[in-house]
Design a protein around this nucleic acid. Sequence first.
RNA 1: UCCUCAGUAGCUCAGCUGGUUAGAGCAUCUGACUGUUAAUCAGAGGGUCGUUGGUUCGAGUCCAACCUGGGGAGCCA
Length: 482
Amino acid sequence: MVYKKIKIKRLLSDPVSGQNIKVNGWVRTKRESKNVVFVALNDGSGLANLQIVADPGKFSELLLKDITTGACISVNGTLVESHGKGQQVELQAESIEVLGKSDPDSYPLQPKKHSLEFLREIAHLRPRTNTFSAIYRIRHAMIFAVHQFFNEKGFLNIHTPIITASDAEGAGEMFRVSTLDPKNPPLLEDGTIDFSLDFFERETNLTVSGQLEAELGALALSEVYTFGPTFRAENSNTTRHLAEFWMIEPEMAFYDLEDNMDLAEEFLKYLIRYALEKCAEDLEFLNQRAAEEEMSRRQEDRYELSLIERLKFVIDNNFERITYTEAIQILMESKPNRKKKFQFLIERWGTDLQSEHERYLVEKHFRKPVILSDYPKEIKAFYMRMNEDGITVRAMDILFPGIGEIVGGSQREERMDQLRRRMQEMEINAEGLWWYLDTRKFGTAPHSGFGLGFERFLQFITGMNNIRDVIPFPRTPGNADF
RNA sequence: UCCUCAGUAGCUCAGCUGGUUAGAGCAUCUGACUGUUAAUCAGAGGGUCGUUGGUUCGAGUCCAACCUGGGGAGCCA
């Protein structure tokens, strides 16, 4: 007898009774009685389990004993229509092989609800749960959609370096990369470490952004994007920060800030539409999960819309676009500011916005994604293009409900004299960035770009509150397990 | 890093103002029963109450420090 190996998702999408099938997977639960044994089997291809039906008379007691929650089994059998209610078809087992036993006494996953905190501690096993397998499938779909979106538009994907010697990006603390003996490093006369004897003959770190290198690509290939790992050594302990995360950074020549915003909005909507179309089953499950979680939250902290409704809402509405100056105006006149309900009151133009202000704009005032632009130069990076007013720069941040800043971008300063002036003002070492300045020297062009935090975006798509639950193995201060 | 809450069985939690042998549900094991659906019913095993020190006749309960985790803030994506 020949049994055709097939993944459970494919099998259930087109079930034909009478087929001889081989499935491999991990046991979710087993229910047994004198005359019949039921096994719920899952291979991660989809949310639905395949019900395996075994006649206890046909299998040894020892074999059946080894089929426990978490065990890996391979089943040959015939697909038949189910007598029971919960499923259309089931696999009538003819032979079962236990590929990997699982001691039920010590296997940590039980057929019951587990807290996300507990599952984080067993991140090596959590993809075997419905919630995390759904998240990982959506994560994959979104990675794929990112590349598809840019490919369709003719953007080139470029790999920017992960190890970098430039420390002038100002995007936060960096992780040092070194092969020097940590116990006894070579020292200079002033007692500091002599990095000229290190592997790269200079001090090197893990990248905090591929942007500067992406700009080099844009100023030759017109439209490029990076999608790579990014590292920040900040001691941030929040639900939306990771020390290692993935960032998508498109960079486009001949785009001004408005073109940049248009692209970002189109991109985000494309990804959300893709998820709704291609991950409907998983989103439906997460929608249910999120709804249950909402019940345990305070009334005023609850979303008005369900997860799927929020996703549809973003697709169906234009993002609100306002300048920083307009935002300050709105915030100064807002109720929480007048009644001194904000922890940080808005008193003057020029201060940076706090989380509470961003949340007010997005969740209370506009009730939709907001693009803030034209920030004061003092609170933004050196490479952002100066406006005519001489006090604001062509920056834009996209704020999403529940997550805050999801995209940060700008039109880049392409004018050499302006760029040099800004670098001087902000005490950026120009020497190490000679290659960056060269692009302004030789055939400079107006250009723009933005960065999308991939995990933050996934939080929005999946409704997960903690960023540590949308990446397989989160790296955070004090945590590098697995 | 700061603020705040928490740490009791494998998991989720109860344990009132300090008072004998520390409880429940689920999970596990054993048995029964049933085309079952997180099956059901009965029984059993399972705990240095996060760690260290202190107060007290007596500490899961009070105090201090530390460790770990959650939430919020800052930094940012």
